[in-house]
Simulated scan of single mutants.
Amino acid sequence: MSNKTYGCLTLFMLLLLIGSILLNVGLFVTKLDFDVSTDATFTAARPKRHLHEVVVENPAKSSADKIVHIDLEGVISSMSVSGIFAEAMPGVEPIKQALEQAVNDKNVKAIVLRVNSPGGEVTASDIIYNAVKKAAKVKPVVVYMDAMAASGGYYVACGATKIVASETTLTASIGVIIETMNYSELFGKVGLSMTAFTSGAFKDSLSGARPMREDEKAYVQNLVTQMYDRFLGIVSESRGVPKEQLKNVADGRVVTGREALNAKLVDQIGYVEDAYALARTLGKSADAGVVKYRHEVSLFDALGMASAKAGAAPAKMELDVSSALMPKLLPGVPYYLPPSFAH
């Protein structure tokens, strides 16, 4: 082959490659949902999201009916992790989105929410509970409790149609905790002090720089009691058990799945397959298959650019996964968590 022919072939291949890249970029851009501000600059570029399905169990007899399996894993938090870690550490919004998509899909006959959580923030738990309860008004929702569904995890479960727990599940822990750390004596030893200017007597409550007053203790305890009463009321309404009877077990302790069944906190002992079977029964679809939702990772997620503004400096991404194993309680934030996690 002559040098001229070889050069023309190389140029042709190069142009073909460039054309392919431009075509793919064009197709990618057409799938983006741009939010354009009044100054005509792009403030954000996100691919439109739709949760994709992964088959867990094939349907029988070519049925189009589905049971959707959704996972609630780890500490329940109002903070969510975006990008490639979103599926492993879901926040409130991904759970709500999965529930909404399942409810809106006419082929979905029931939902199985697998809970494996020690609990978490009070408000985040309440939001997910409300989303589960709303979904259960439209389609049956079966909660399957895995290794742990305690405190906020149990709170969420109370929104379901039915609850299935394993024999060895640790659940209940019906209670509220608020923590703070007092380091005022340490300040004195090292010669430090703190001065705070506040607009009211309770504005710097839970400050660790000074001893807590008795009226502050009563004030914080009242907050805890209000949240505990709400928790107790939700359990009582969901399980049909009077509050006074619940107080025999609703003192913050965790119990096994068998003990929870005896206390009427759950409906059935079993495994996730039993939850699927119950969901098929409640959904009146014996032939339904089982699918899981997954988040498709976009290019922007992978590069950490999902929320970057045009022209902004690249953000430094830091990920601390330790809180998924042992949560770090924020001072003054109320949590539905077992005492063993409150450190």
Rank of each mutant, 00 (worst) to 15 (best):
Ser2Gln: 04
Lys4Pro: 02
Thr10Gln: 00
Thr10Met: 06
Phe12Val: 13
Met13Leu: 13
Val25Asn: 10
Ser37Pro: 05
Ala44Glu: 15
Val56Gly: 08
Pro59Ala: 11
Ala64Asp: 11
His69Pro: 00
Gly74Pro: 10
Ser77Gln: 03
Val81Tyr: 07
Leu99Gln: 02
Val103Asp: 07
Val103Ala: 05
Val112Trp: 03
Val112Gln: 01
Arg114Cys: 00
Arg114Trp: 06
Ser125Asp: 12
Ile128Asp: 04
Tyr129Gly: 08
Tyr129Trp: 10
Ala136Asn: 01
Pro140Arg: 05
Val143Phe: 04
Tyr144Lys: 06
Gly152Asp: 11
Thr161Ala: 03
Ala165Thr: 05
Ser166Phe: 01
Thr169Trp: 07
Ser173Gln: 10
Ser173Leu: 09
Ser173Thr: 15
Ile178Val: 12
Tyr183Lys: 07
Leu186Arg: 11
Thr195Gln: 11
Ser199Asp: 14
Ala201Glu: 15
Gly208Cys: 08
Arg210Ser: 09
Arg213Tyr: 10
Asp215Cys: 06
Gln221Ala: 15
Thr225Pro: 00
Asp229Gly: 01
Ser236Tyr: 05
Glu237Met: 13
Ser238Trp: 04
Gly240Glu: 02
Lys243Pro: 00
Glu244Thr: 11
Gln245Glu: 13
Gly252Asp: 00
Gly257His: 04
Gly257Arg: 02
Gly257Lys: 01
Arg258Ala: 09
Leu261Ile: 09
Ala263Pro: 03
Ala263Ile: 08
Lys264Thr: 02
Asp267Ala: 09
Glu273Leu: 04
Glu273Tyr: 06
Asp274Glu: 04
Lys292Gly: 01
Tyr293Cys: 03
Arg294Phe: 14
Asp301Ile: 03
Ala302Arg: 14
Ser307Leu: 03
Glu318Ser: 13
Ser322Gln: 08
Ala324Gly: 13
Val333Cys: 04
Pro334Ser: 12
Leu337Asp: 05
Pro339Arg: 09
Ala342Phe: 00
His343Asn: 13
